[in-house]
Design a protein around this nucleic acid. Structure first.
Length: 414
RNA sequence: GCGGGUAUAGCUCAGUUGGUUAGAGCGCUUGGUUGUGGUCCAAGAGGUCGUCGGUUCAAAUCCGACUACUCGCCCCA
């Protein structure tokens, strides 16, 4: 094992896993397209500033998790740790504010220098959607609904809980932050070390703490809902109404907060208990201040990202490998004819394997190993008859089919 | 970044209180079957016991460091 390993926290995806990942991405994109999202592909690295400015200087991602390096021109660049910042940057760079609302779907690798765990890697993959330029709760509803329908399409509707909360608008959030910090200051003696560090950096996170002492303090803490102004209240109510109208079951989690500074109003997480500590499978929220903060025209936004690895781990029945046909020649003459015959079948749309060498027995073995549906056997008898023997490898039944009508004869193995 | 666990064949795992040439199942190769796969039978290949160092007459086994994986914390998809 010591010899040649991939970099810590990165993995090779062998065919079975690769297929599962592709299925997750393809399914997600298919559903997102149905919702009117269109794919945007951004580079996998950006100027470091892009992430620093969006994620906030105090976030964990910026302070300790970024893959940052200087390129040969002396520019500081960073492998993207998440997708939203890049989409927003592209939105500004390309003047997309002119075409609002923009509905973007994205996918691809993300990089975070973290200690790996199950479902947590240094290079991982996300799919995500963002809606830019819509102020009202209709966008929040659409984005959450899209996420939920994707999980349903993956067969995960029942295994995932949709947790929902609101952080309120900027005014409400700031007001709450103040009351919360004041309360926590009063009981700072009871807080865990982690939470003391969070007290000013990111006090909302303390609500989410797993420490017992913290939980006791949090249990009596002022509730965010009480700090919400009228606007925030109605906004949240309308999000809930919309999801109810779509029969999307949600659990209101007053303690659900998001780590990144740019979130306002709606916050949500789709979680599962099947993945240990990494139970969040899809998460996002509204980020009305972000575009402006990055130097663009004030533009509201809402979106989410989902972890492809985590979803792939949950897939109940991973997609099966494709089942090809196998062309099996017997004899030198057949060997010559097999190549153009294989090509002809491939051009007719069949997946066809032609073994590279070996006698008939070996080739039949290979046909079996690659789980071929049928073998198209070509030998002296067949050549003489202008036909091929088609053997159904599941039933063992075989019949001679004239080469003229071969495609039609193979139709049921397509 | 912090704490715990694990590391033996391609895979899943045995390996006694330290004691000769380190095992099994699955998989792989070959043969039984030079025009028929799967099942069955037989044979075979495959291991610096994660790496480096230490203790010992003797280390897969005991000790240390490192690396990777894993579980939890932090954080997050």
């Amino acid at each position: 094992m010591a010899a040649l390993q991939p970099v810590r926290g990165t993995h090779d995806l062998l065919p079975d896993t690769a297929r599962a990942h592709r299925a997750v991405e393809a399914r997600a994109q298919e559903v997102a397209l149905r919702f009117g999202f269109d794919e945007i592909v951004t580079p996998i690295f950006e100027f470091t500033e892009v992430f620093k400015r969006t994620l906030g200087d105090t976030s964990d991602i910026v302070t300790k998790e970024m893959y940052t390096f200087e390129d040969r021109g002396g520019e500081s660049v960073t492998l993207r740790p998440e997708g939203t910042a890049a989409i927003v940057r592209a939105f500004i760079s390309n003047g997309l504010a002119q075409q609002v609302p923009v509905k973007a779907f994205y996918r691809g690798p993300m990089f975070r220098y973290e200690r790996p765990q199950k479902g947590r890697l240094r290079q991982f993959h996300q799919v995500g959607v963002e809606i830019l330029g819509v102020e009202g709760p209709a966008a929040d509803i659409e984005v959450i609904a899209c996420g939920y329908r994707i999980l349903e399409a993956l067969g995960l509707g029942g295994t995932v809980t949709v947790e929902l909360n609101t952080l309120g608008d900027l005014e409400s959030r700031a007001a709450y932050r103040e009351t919360l910090v004041a309360y926590l200051e009063g009981r700072r003696g009871e807080l865990s070390e982690d939470s003391l560090a969070r007290l000013h950096r990111n006090p909302l996170r303390i609500l989410d703490s797993k420490d017992e002492g913290d939980r006791a303090v949090v249990a009596e803490a002022p509730v965010l809902a009480d700090s919400l102004n009228e606007t925030s209240r109605t906004f949240f109510a309308r999000v809930q109404e919309g999801l109810a109208a779509l029969d999307i079951p949600v659990a209101i989690s007053p303690r659900l907060v998001r780590g990144l500074d740019y979130y306002t109003h709606t916050a949500f997480e789709f979680t599962t208990t099947a993945l240990g500590a990494q139970g969040t499978v899809l998460a996002g929220g509204r980020y009305d201040g972000l575009v402006k903060q990055m130097g663009g025209p004030p533009t509201p936004g809402v979106g989410w990202a989902a972890g492809v690895e985590r979803l792939a781990l949950l897939l109940a029945d991973p997609p099966p490998a494709p089942r090809p046909l196998a062309v099996v020649p017997a004899g030198a003459e057949a060997e010559r004819l097999a190549l153009p015959l294989t090509d002809r079948l491939r051009r007719a749309g069949f997946a066809v394997d032609l073994g590279f060498s070996g006698n008939m027995g070996k080739r039949m073995k290979r046909a079996n190993r690659i789980n071929a549906r049928a073998a198209v056997i070509l030998g002296e008898d067949e050549i003489a008859a202008g036909a091929a023997t088609v053997r159904d490898l599941d039933s063992g039944e075989q019949t001679q089919v004239p080469l003229d009508g071969l495609e039609a004869g193979l139709d049921r193995f397509r």
